[in-house]
């Protein structure tokens, strides 16, 4: 049962006069993992950041075309980027826990959005988020320790828990494992697989193996263009485009 969660129609993204994304149209479905792959500088991260309007925070960045979340234009004047980002969460390349305790890291989102009306409710959110992120058992006895004191992989799972705590509908992940070792990476991948039941997940990745392991659909970007988009199994075994084939067989990238 897949339904379309995010729809992009003829999207261009500019940084000042430079065009970083050229006429991309794509449908992203609920309940599965969609991977964006491509050589570095191909615009996959740029496009990801336009899906929750994080590009707004970069001076000179401009998005044209249409991006719809459940049929609503997220760039419409009536759309509040603050409310949008509560619905479309994001996990970054390098783990970026706030310099606060583990508890406070997760409580931050629910608190600003007023999602808990009592301490007990907040505690429940903390526990369920950490549990979903597979971190609860490791940190339940030291919730007041600094988030920055955790290992890299734990920090990244903390950041995922932090995103989940706001109960978003979509989770965007920008190369979430690029700073982690293989064991931590495996844990995160496992986690992504579990989470896809409840969220639409988009993951930008540098590694084709990772895309093949975790995603159901894959989009291949090259020089700001969406070259090919389809079932992951199709893309990796039987790509339609010559460029995709060259990339996945390692001829460049």
């Amino acid at each position: 049962m897949t339904e379309t969660k995010l729809t992009a129609r003829n999207v261009d993204v500019f940084y000042g006069p430079k065009k970083a994304i050229d006429n991309v149209s794509i449908d992203i479905d609920n309940g599965i993992v969609t991977a964006f792959i491509g050589p570095s500088g191909c615009g996959k991260s740029t496009f990801l950041r336009s899906l929750n309007r994080m590009n707004d925070t970069i001076a000179g960045a401009r998005v044209t075309g249409e991006i719809l979340l459940d049929g609503e234009d997220i760039y419409a004047p009536s759309m509040d980027p603050v409310a949008l980002r509560a619905r479309v969460g994001m996990v970054f390349q390098k783990p970026n826990p706030f310099p606060k305790s583990i508890y406070e890291n997760i409580a931050y989102g629910p608190r600003i959005h007023g999602l808990a009306s009592s301490k007990a409710e907040m505690d429940a959110i903390i526990e369920s988020s950490l549990t979903k992120a597979g971190l609860w058992d490791e940190v339940k006895d030291r919730l007041s320790d600094a988030g920055t004191a955790l290992s890299g992989g734990q920090q990244q799972r903390l950041c995922i828990a932090r995103a989940i705590a706001v109960s978003p509908e979509v989770i965007l992940m920008d190369e979430p494992c690029s700073a982690l070792d293989p064991i931590a990476t495996a844990k995160i991948e496992e986690l992504i697989d579990e989470l896809k039941e409840n969220y639409a997940i988009v993951i930008v990745t540098h590694s084709m193996q990772q895309a093949a392991r975790v995603s159901q659909r894959t989009a291949f970007f090259h020089l700001g263009n969406l070259v090919e988009y389809g079932e992951t199994s199709e893309i990796f075994t039987n790509p339609r485009e010559e460029k995709t084939k060259d990339y996945i067989t390692g001829r460049y990238g």
Binding site: M54, F98, Y108, R162
Partner: peptide, 15 residues
């Protein structure tokens, strides 16, 4: 303060 800090907060929907 690294930009990642404010990015992390903004991405959660903080103003």
């Amino acid at each position: 303060v690294p930009r990642a800090m404010s990015d992390g907060s903004l991405a959660l929907g903080a103003t």
